[in-house]
């Protein structure tokens, strides 16, 4: 029900981002979505990509500080209010969203997020039959 997201620690200085992107290029792995949580001195670059497990290995080989995090990726209907409706279900279940970002895949909005309670989040998704992206879909759709 979850997918692997790469979380990469990069210092705020020139050359650190390109090193990461070059590693993806080298490994011939397609990026699907990315976002960065930045502070004054460093950022956490979060990446959804095809073949995240292989990407993690390749990045490590390139000397990049990377971690794999389990995140949810839900598919949204392309209409106003769909994100609000989905998040409300989690909110009502008492689940906090740690971070969230969105991207489009094959014309569908995808909501990527981590919660403070993975088990309860899984239950909420199952109970409400929310359409989710599985890890296998990433390689296929990319």
């Amino acid at each position: 029900m979850t997918i692997h997201q790469l979380s990469i620690f990069i210092e705020n200085r020139s050359g650190t981002l390109i090193k990461v992107l070059e590693a993806f290029k080298e490994a011939k792995i397609q990026l699907i979505a990315s976002t960065i949580a930045d502070t004054a001195e460093y950022g956490i670059l979060r990446i959804v990509c095809a073949e995240p497990m292989r990407a993690c290995e390749e990045l490590k080989k390139a000397g990049i500080a990377v971690a794999l995090s389990d995140v949810f990726a839900l598919q949204l209907d392309n209409k106003p209010g769909s994100a609000a409706d989905v998040i409300k279900l989690f909110s009502q279940a008492g689940i906090s969203i740690t971070y969230i970002y969105t991207f489009l895949m094959r014309g569908k909005g995808i909501l990527v997020f981590r919660t403070n309670n993975t088990d309860l989040a899984r239950k909420t998704i199952a109970e409400n039959n929310l359409p989710y992206i599985a890890e296998g879909d990433l390689a296929e759709w990319a």
Binding site: F9, V66, D70
Partner: peptide, 18 residues
């Protein structure tokens, strides 16, 4: 310098680094 072992699944937010 951070050790590679630090980079676990929860090390994905600035709060964890802070």
């Amino acid at each position: 310098e951070l050790r590679e072992e630090v980079f676990t699944s929860t090390f994905d937010t600035p709060a964890a680094v802070d």
